[in-house]
Design a protein around this nucleic acid. Sequence first.
DNA 1: CTGTTAGCGCCTTCAT
DNA 2: ATGAAGGCGCTAACAG
Lengths: 330, 330
Amino acid sequence: MDIRDVARHAGVSIATVSRVLNNSAKVSDELRSRVLEAVEELDFRPDHLARSLRNRQTSIVGIIIPDISNPFFPLIARGAEDVLRRADISLMIFNSDQKPATELQAVEMMLAKKVDGILFVGTGADNEAVTLMRTSRTPVVYLDRSEKGRVASVVTDNYGGMTKIMTYMLELGHTSFWYLGGPPLLSTAIERKRAVIDFSRHHKHISLKVYSGHYTYEWAYSKASELLKAERTPHAIIAGNDLMAMGVIDACNSENLVVPDDVSVTGFDDIFFASHFDPPLTTIRQPIYKLGALGAKLLREYIKGTRKKPVSRVLEVNLVVRASTCRRSI
Amino acid sequence: MDIRDVARHAGVSIATVSRVLNNSAKVSDELRSRVLEAVEELDFRPDHLARSLRNRQTSIVGIIIPDISNPFFPLIARGAEDVLRRADISLMIFNSDQKPATELQAVEMMLAKKVDGILFVGTGADNEAVTLMRTSRTPVVYLDRSEKGRVASVVTDNYGGMTKIMTYMLELGHTSFWYLGGPPLLSTAIERKRAVIDFSRHHKHISLKVYSGHYTYEWAYSKASELLKAERTPHAIIAGNDLMAMGVIDACNSENLVVPDDVSVTGFDDIFFASHFDPPLTTIRQPIYKLGALGAKLLREYIKGTRKKPVSRVLEVNLVVRASTCRRSI
DNA sequence: CTGTTAGCGCCTTCAT
DNA sequence: ATGAAGGCGCTAACAG
């Protein structure tokens, strides 16, 4: 089944068929309707592959994320897929596990498959994968990773969010803090940490200890356990994200500390389970779905060429107060 | 940059280049090394699209799932992606929201893009999407949905799992049950329900009420609330999955019932948060990652043609006892 | 073993 | 407004 068959069936040339199929040039009503009829009767579907080869575009967009099974990322993918689908674009997915080598492999694969654009949630380091994307001239939008203007990005207000948490905690009377943050090279972790440190500088009477690690339940659990055994418990432990907050809380429980009575704990992200945890997490709600959706929307503009210069979009975040924090009277 | 450029550079014909690139025929060492050298120097990458058009295969596999942001599905996708990537196959993802129309759109899109095969986690109904897949002759493997032998599938032992739960609950002394299950057309929900009903038939002295709804926190919460207000609380509420169990538990809390002291609650799936919920869920651990991985592995065999007849694989599941259940003394 | 040639299915000048 | 013809980049006969 072929554009040629349609042409024959309709008694026109293949050029005419192509024209009505793509609305790419004027065709008389007479021929047009004959073509449409033939298409109908033969149930003809243009071969997408042949089109891609000719037009050099696949209507496929790739997304590279650390791990789809980490509860934070599916919503990004969902947001992206929803807007992409409306434009008949499909989403190809690749897990990088935050490993530069895997990330590079991902980029190579997507480039080889000629994706129209890439949604990139990277490791944060400026590695080969990044270089390859840049030299390829394939449109790229960074998601949840800022790249200081060299490439388009959509991020949430990590600095502002963490500042909101600290401000709230101070209002509640907390003055001694531990901060357990994410990987030292990740822009989100950098921003959140910077907010905490800046805050402590502006408020001389509070004490703060800062630790960087991984955005995981496991790391937070073990680090918190270690610290709780060795040092004096602070008023509050600020975690880099919800998963970490959960790890911290479970560590506290293991040490027979009650959250929030003995120590307040905060998260960041507001993933689904944040509200169902025991205790429910005080955290920052991030518009994760929107992050993916907006990123996809921007990417489309770069692909279509209606936008050229890299832009950085920052999404607002909100404080959500729940039961993992309480007033601290001294 | 072209296979033609490489040929010119190496002083051979394009056919020879193609031959060494694909190892598709004998080429003298002399020419072979000249080609390889040219490829190296020009940093040549074969155009995947042209290859796809020629070979009628894209090295892309599609997966259709209800919703990637539902915590159950990412692990399936991850398992599939991991095995596919090793074969240089990319995974294209599509959310169906369990809607037949969206599902159909997904199938059409994947077929149009000429995916080599489809991993299908469907709505359960025998709809147009299913028909379209069948007529397309594209290899398909059903995941977590059984199709009585007409098409390949990988499922977990839903019947056996639910039987394990009921057996355990009986051992613990429970004799009155509510069962809040999933959608009446989904094979997983059908199997689990059947197990519960069969069990009650074999044990005349237990009482059971069965309700079907959705695999969601929300439905379970509202249904449980309604029932708890209207009827006498049973010894145990058996939920169709973990999300539902969480909804049930929260509903119990709202009604001032303590789980498990006043009523035991069980889940199914053992998603990550099952062990972190309050109380931690007694549930069935399903090998979700393996479901996706095995499905992908099978699909590859159908694509390669090394397997023809549809097979059904059933994965074993395990009971995980935690704190949402306790001994019931009468 | 190697090269020439004919497509895969489509879009798009270039003439008419 | 329409048709004929030439590729997009690659693979696979078919000759030699």
